[in-house]
């Protein structure tokens, strides 16, 4: 049995092309039936996420399987022209290597992200239920999930957070441990501050207080996040309750000063205070960081931690490549030992 993959991804084509060949959940039953009817395609499996659409196939002759998959794509999506350079067509061993790299997050837009593994497992389950796969692809995918797990635990490719929001969450956990008792305050209802607040809430933060110059906007965001809105002038009083403060106003000067924070610390019974300044120009006086039990990070601090973590991931690529290569060789050995026609 020869294993091939025909696919399209964020690396090979823009979204306008990718969306033409994407599959919606309702289409899969019909798609699997049509795919299996193509001559030469003995086994098939369809992956369709925002960043990639891939069809893995197995059959006696790899050229025939690739042709079958391309014909299927053309017909199923009613494309006016044959797909050219936008799609990649890999035969063994590249096809196996590609799958191992995809499940491990090595081909993802954000290197080392782990969401893809869940999506690939889902795609596999779907194909399995539709009886579109056989012995070869079943073995291949199970092996691929093992490889992803091994790479995840034995290298640092998924370690460290690589976005501003998740770095903020990680820092909050370094200060407070569990976030269950922590209150979040958002000053200035912007896009990044909202995302950061959501990330904190998803990790268990208790409630959100929102302050914004336009009070209506504060009320809207507070309602959306299940928190409460306060008048903009009143936010300094909230330092007594809030543990994590995300600030991103358009103010031209510092709106949070040492004086205000120092006055709030006794009211907080000296519990730590984590200040995140996402605004440019900055909202929070930098010297606040020198106060006891106060930790201030601005947007550049967060970004440089995220960049550093990304560099640490990139340093692991060589090690991952070695592991992938070794596992491809091992899998092909198994494949070649299969008696012809065993599948």
């Amino acid at each position: 049995m020869a294993i091939v993959v025909v696919g399209i991804s964020h690396q090979s084509a823009p979204v306008e092309v990718r969306e033409r060949v994407a599959f919606s959940p309702g289409q899969f039953a019909e798609a699997f039936a049509t795919l299996r009817a193509e001559p030469g395609v003995a086994e098939g499996l369809i992956v369709s996420t925002c960043n990639r659409m891939e069809i893995y196939g197995a059959g006696a002759d790899s050229a025939a399987v690739i042709r079958g998959i391309e014909d299927f794509l053309h017909r199923f999506h009613e494309l006016d022209a044959r797909l050219g350079e936008e799609i990649y067509r890999y035969e063994e061993p590249r096809s196996i290597e590609h799958l191992f790299r995809v499940v491990s997050g090595l081909e993802s837009m954000v290197l080392g992200e782990t969401e893809i593994l869940g999506q690939m497992k889902e795609a596999y389950e779907r194909a399995l239920t539709a009886r579109a796969t056989g012995k070869t692809l079943n073995q291949l995918f199970q092996r691929a999930f093992q490889v992803a797990k091994k790479i995840r635990s034995q290298t640092a490719i998924v370690r460290g957070t690589v976005s501003v929001g998740s770095v903020a969450v990680e820092l909050a956990e370094k200060i407070f441990g569990e976030l269950g008792q922590s209150q979040v305050m958002v000053i200035g209802a912007g896009d990044t501050s909202e995302k950061t607040a959501r990330a904190l809430l998803s990790r268990g933060a208790k409630t959100v207080i929102v302050a914004n110059r336009t009070h209506e906007r504060a009320q809207a965001l507070a309602a959306e996040l299940g928190g409460r809105a306060v008048r903009f002038e009143e936010f300094p009083q909230e330092f007594a309750h809030a543990d994590i403060v995300v600030s991103s106003t358009a103010a031209p000067h510092h709106i949070v000063t040492c004086e205000k924070v120092a006055a709030a610390m006794p009211l907080r019974r000296n519990r730590p205070l984590f200040l995140i300044d996402l605004a440019v120009p900055r909202d929070i006086e930098p010297a606040v960081n020198d106060l006891d039990n106060v930790y201030l990070y601005n947007i550049d601090d967060l970004q440089s931690i995220a960049d550093e973590n990304m560099r640490a991931r990139q340093e692991e690529i060589a090690k991952c490549n070695e592991m992938v290569a070794a596992n491809v060789a091992k899998f092909r050995e198994w494949l070649n030992r299969l008696p012809p026609g065993a599948a």
Binding site: I175, F176, G177
Partner: peptide
């Protein structure tokens, strides 16, 4: 604002 090395594994300061 540093989080590298083995000290990155230290528990949260509140803990």
């Amino acid at each position: 604002h540093r989080m590298r090395g083995i000290f990155a594994r230290l528990p949260a300061i509140e803990q």
